[in-house]
Design a protein around this nucleic acid. Structure first.
Lengths: 267, 267
DNA sequence: GCTGGTAAAG
DNA sequence: CTTTACCAGC
């Protein structure tokens, strides 16, 4: 039995509902985790997604900023919203569902971007980001007995050298500074998570899931970063069969700056 | 010798420089008075209008709001900017030019819209509008000996019954309330102006120069108003040969909500 | 630099 | 409905 999950920072779900529909029609993942929906739960374009088979939708939205949503073909046993850093941001949503007799917890996360200056003393956004990642250490892949876990989303950190177009040029750029990359890898390790994208694609191969809107020709310059991630508990990591970065989506009309990433499992 | 003048609320001259160029190429009025340029004099797209023969440009702009500009094929003898209501708004610009041996003063005006509620007690925007129109009474068509005068622009008032799509339905709507229409007609009379559009087009014929952006199909519903005007001193009113409301311009790509109005004279 | 949402104005 | 400014994000 296969199971697939996609994570996608959609950068306004209202503006890109059509892109979401196209993606769901073409790829049909079992679960789609969206970040940066940028709308309240009331504003979420639920009607647009009807009739596609994604009858189970969990929302954690807020006005204008952030916001996460999980759409699923499989019903949820449980929905949890965690208020990281207790600031009231809509940045986390987890659901539990059952695939056959396997229970799976799916965390959907949107880590703060962190602003421009990589100094927690002077930049409160960067401090917030570091605190968020620190708090993420407590999210345990094996926290629920008998439940496998997946954690995906826009983590806004590119931890490895080949997660950015130029390791050297980005060492002082927020998303690839040592304090962030170390923090993220620490959270991953302490939480007993496996980086599924890197389990499938070797560390010496570049992976990008995000290309800035600033570049005239994102494809030609290809100055991307891997900001989006899929992590799994050991129990589910063993079942991973494929990871797909949907790069062509960046070339769609009026695209998000992030592309979807799909992990597929044989359970 | 013919002379023609066009008034046009352009609703951002930067966004619609191409429309202005198209209009000038097709119609070639001697003078074009623009309102709602929505830019400072530094931001005005002067370069875009080069090579069309409109070498004489007078500007009274401000950041983001209001702003008037007069483009001319005939040089100016004089330029005056009047600060109506002494609030520092860029809503007036007058130039003087010579056509043969006739001197003409051309006033270019953008009267405040006045907000939604037609009550000067509760709505300061409406109070401002009424004060502006009151001050307009002092603009005299015969103020300069030996100089004919034209006054044009977006006066934001539709004074006659056939200046709106429904007199009855608009009596309490700002732009057609009795206090405004009476105020405008008083200013016209006291200033010894002739309504040139209504000299050419009889009062029992509807004239519209503006259609709301809000209507789905402006042409089908045709719920317009005559908010734009051309007035003249008696001396030049006698020379009027035609008035053209350029209605098709409302159907151009990404149009202004106002269309140009041209008055033509045989001097 | 390009994108998004908000808010005010018309 | 449209435009502008402003703010935030990346």
């Amino acid at each position: 039995m296969t199971f697939s999950l996609t994570t996608w920072n959609i950068n306004s779900v209202r503006l890109r509902a059509d892109a979401v529909i196209r993606f769901l029609r073409e790829e049909r993942p079992d679960v789609l985790c969206l970040q940066e929906t940028k709308c309240t739960d009331e504003q979420f374009p639920l009607a647009a997604f009807e009739g596609l088979g994604y009858d189970h939708v969990a929302l954690n939205g807020q006005k204008a900023y952030h916001g996460v949503a999980t759409l699923s073909r499989i019903p949820f046993d449980d929905v949890v919203r965690q208020d990281f850093c207790a600031v009231g941001d809509a940045r986390h949503l987890s659901v539990r569902l059952a695939v056959g007799d396997r229970k799976i917890r799916v965390h959907n996360l949107y880590v703060p971007a962190g602003g421009d200056e990589p100094d927690p003393q002077t930049n409160p956004k960067f401090k917030h980001k570091l605190q968020f990642v620190d708090e993420l250490r407590r999210t345990d892949a094996d926290g629920e007995p008998g439940v496998s876990a997946l954690l995906c989303g826009d983590l806004n950190i590119a931890p490895y050298e080949n997660d950015v177009w130029s390791h050297k040029q980005l060492l002082k750029i927020v998303s690839h500074t040592p304090v962030e990359t170390q923090g993220l890898l620490t959270a991953m390790t302490e939480g007993r998570w496996t980086d599924l994208m890197r389990r499938h694609i070797p560390l010496d191969e570049k992976i990008f899931t995000w290309w800035s809107y600033r570049a005239k020709d994102w494809e030609a310059s290809n100055r991307g970063r891997r900001l989006d991630h899929v992590w799994g508990s050991s129990s589910i990591a063993e079942a991973l069969t494929a990871v797909t970065v949907h790069t062509p989506v960046r070339g769609w009309d009026r695209p998000s700056d992030h592309v979807p990433v799909t992990a597929t499992f044989s359970l």
